[in-house]
């Protein structure tokens, strides 16, 4: 039936189905213990990150290693805008006086985090979108390192290696799930839009795309800026979830986990981004339980730190080798959104 819907209608149906899934998970988890709720909240934030990354990477075909920088920007914005002035004055004396004096509501800080990430994405995207293929991916990686080095060394403004504490607790499961749903809706609308469609054309065949009038740089830049906005918001939520901001969070580990979610699920579809996040979260939880060690009856397998990561990277390698298009094969749920 999917094929008889207009692209916009199909993607709205898709978004609704995925959001219903998010809502069900949220409802179920909200009945569970506090620990499970935290896991679910964390997963919803990751979902926002991964769906945000998907908007750019999935539609353009250019894998980005730099989006975690946008997450960091969002988190630091939250810290700059919502920590109380007295703590700010001692932790981040390098901030301008007006900023130290400012104390916004976390919701405002979250939107500001998204906007800052978008602005930075525009600035770096202008040169970055000139690059093609592997050079583009390397460029996004350079972005990651530049921001990590800045976060962890600009002590008067970011707290450097230390942690910024004193963020108000704001992010809970419903809020995280709500923002994740919003992101899914935005991704679905974007991919059905003319701009998203043109970007997917450039992913399929850049030369043919130019020959039908598509300005690839422009389309990539649009997607880069939009996707940075949502990842930036996720960063602020993440900061209000952990209530501390530490530079070390915004580097290789989280990059690896989110890229793994995207690749394992299938980076060419929105459904893939959602499924990948769900799969990796469950798989990691399973491994985390195992990490504590368990009794096999005849032998006690000792818990091992690192098992979770080893399992995850092994799963990712297997996915690349045996299912290079991910669990979903790059298809949308029920064939909604006709292109794969």
């Amino acid at each position: 039936m999917a094929r008889y819907l207009s692209p916009k209608a199909a993607s709205l149906v898709l978004a609704v189905l995925l959001i219903v899934a998010v809502a069900v998970v949220t409802l179920v988890c909200s009945q569970l213990s506090g620990g499970s709720q935290r896991v679910a909240t964390d997963a919803m934030i990751k979902l926002t990150i991964v769906v945000g990354m998907y908007m750019f990477a999935g539609n353009s075909g250019v894998l980005s290693f730099g989006h975690i920088s946008f997450l960091g920007l969002g988190a630091y914005s939250a810290a700059w805008l919502t920590i109380s002035p007295s703590i700010k004055a001692s932790l981040m004396p390098g901030l301008p006086a007006w900023l130290i004096a400012l104390e916004l509501h976390p919701a405002a800080g979250t939107v500001a985090g998204g906007l800052l990430a978008s602005a930075v994405a525009l600035l770096f995207g202008l040169p970055l979108t000139r690059l093609a293929g592997i050079a583009a991916s390397i460029g996004t990686f350079a972005l990651l390192v530049i921001f990590y080095a800045t976060f962890s060394n600009w002590t008067p403004v970011t707290g450097g290696q230390g942690s910024l504490y004193g963020l108000p607790t704001f992010t809970n499961l419903p809020i995280a799930a709500g923002v994740a749903s919003l992101t899914i809706l935005a991704a679905a609308l974007y991919q059905a839009s003319a701009a998203g469609f043109r970007l997917r054309g450039s992913r399929e065949d850049p030369i043919a795309a130019r020959a039908v009038g598509i300005d690839i740089r422009r389309e990539r830049l649009i997607a880069f800026v939009i996707s940075a906005f949502f990842v930036g918001m996720a960063g602020a939520l993440y900061a209000h979830f952990l209530t501390v901001v530490v530079a070390g969070e915004f580097y290789l580990k989280l990059t690896f986990i989110t890229v793994a979610m995207l690749v394992i699920g299938g980076m060419r579809s929105l459904t893939g981004a959602v499924v990948g996040t769900a799969f990796v979260t469950l798989f990691s939880e399973l491994l985390r339980q195992t990490e504590r060690g368990f009794d096999l009856g005849f032998v006690v397998v000792g818990g091992r730190l690192g098992l979770q990561e080893v399992g995850l990277s092994a799963a990712m390698l297997l996915a690349l080798i045996f299912r290079p298009r991910g669990i979903t094969g790059g298809r949308e749920l029920g064939g909604l959104g006709t292109s794969r």
Binding site: S6, P7, K8, A192, S193, A194, F197, R198, G201, A209, V212, G213, I214
Partner: peptide, 12 residues
Amino acid sequence: EMAGVGIGLSRS
């Protein structure tokens, strides 16, 4: 359809 969208038409 891509070609039409490419030169600036709406998707529909």
